[in-house]
Amino acid sequence: MAGNREFFYRRLHSLLGVIPVGLFLVQHLVVNHFATKGEEAFNDAAHFMESLPFRIFLELFIIFLPLLFHAIYGLYIAFTAKNNTVKYSFFRNWMFMLQRVTGVITLIFVVWHVWETRIAAAFGAEVNYQMMENIFENPWMIAFYIVGVISAIFHFANGLWSFFVSWGITVTPRSQLISTYATLGIFIALSIVGIRAIFAFV
């Protein structure tokens, strides 16, 4: 394992982006969507998630540690690339660049979002419908959340595409093309879920 640390880290980075971080993202978006059914439905769903047993361990091993590794190693990956979309404006090269840009935007958004909700909760604030409604009283925060959520979803959907390539699942150009359409579909579907939830609080 000593000789191929980079290989191991890269593969771990790719895996953690999907399992568990990507799955957590989907679950989070789905829970948020309860907001479209009204205040009570959202609070019930949020409360159910909060009252899961061993919550701190679930958060630590399913969210915080994998996310931290993915974020820090991802920054290293993003900043070792020398983007060249001006010279080589191919579709996949644009996706390559956007994957890095959305990764950085998502990180900034997630840090802010965790500070505003989970860390605030640790200091005694209650995370509920009311809290989100208060945040969204500021129209700039709505814009920030839309950009953050869309970035996160794009990063997940496109990351899923490269996950399939990195693990050698989609090898042929045809399978990679179909995978492009499939992940595009995931991006659109989850974006609808995410945006609907945001506007449910407004």
Binding site: N4, R5, E6, N93, M95, M97
Partner: peptide, 15 residues
């Protein structure tokens, strides 16, 4: 190619 500077460095830009 599983060593440093190898295969895993590919970022799939497909240029």
């Amino acid at each position: 190619i599983m060593g440093d500077g190898g295969l895993a460095n590919c970022g799939n830009s497909q240029n």
